[in-house]
Amino acid sequence: MNSTEDKIYFYPVWLRIWHGINALGIILLIVTGITMNSGFEKGLIEFGLNMKLHNFAGAIVSLNYLVFLLGNLVTSNKKFYIVKPRNFLKRPMKQAYYYAWGMFHGMQTPYPLSEKRKFNPLQKYAYIMVMYFAVPLVIVSGIGLMFPELIFNQVYDISGVLITAVTHSAMGFFISIFLIIHLYVASIGKSPLDNFRSIVNGWHHITKK
C-alpha cells in the first residue's frame, strides 16, 4: 500500500472530470428516462420538470462526449482502446472464465493491468461497445427527438419518430445495464471500494505478479 511501485497513475485529471460529469449525468438520464418511458406520472419529481432535466442532462452529457473524443484524440489514452485481432474471442473468454471460476480457485488474473494495459479484454470490449456504439447512437437519436423535423418520415409503414424513440430508449437501456455491471465489476479490486477511490484520486492499485 505504501510502496509506489504497485500503484499506477491511470486516470489523469481531465479524464476524472469527464468521468465524474458523465457518471452523474447518465444516472440522472437513466432515472428521468425510465420515468418517461414507463409513463410514471407521479414520480419523485414533477413530470414536466423530469423532461426538462432529461433534456438538459442529455445536452451536457453530449457535450461531455466531445471532451472524451477530444481527450482520446490528443492524449495517449486512445491506445487502451485498440483491439488486437489475434485471439479476438479467446481473450475476453479467458477473462470471463477468470471472473466466473478462476478468481474463486486461486487463479491469477490472466491479464494483469500495467502502464501498457489499463483494461482487461472483457472490459475493453464493453467500453468500446458503450462509448463508440451505444453512446453515439443515443446522442444522435436524442438530437433527432429534440429536433423531430430532422427525422425521416417513415420506413415502410413504421414512423421515423417511433424508430428513433425505440433506438433511443433501447440504447439508453443497454447503457443502464452497462452501468449496473460496471459498478459491480468495479467492486472487484483490492477491496470493494478501492477502485472507486482510484477514479477519484487517479491512482490504481495493480496486482503484483
Binding site: M36, N37, S38, G39, G48, M51, K52, H54, N55, F56, A59, L145, M146, V161, L162, A165, V166, T167, H168, S169, A170, G172, F173
Partner: peptide, 15 residues
C-alpha cells in the same frame, strides 16, 4: 427554450 421543451414520446416500452 429548446431544452425546456416538455414533449416526449414513449420508446421501447410501447412495444
Amino acid at each position: 427554450g429548446v431544452l425546456s421543451n416538455e414533449n416526449y414520446v414513449i420508446g421501447s416500452h410501447q412495444i
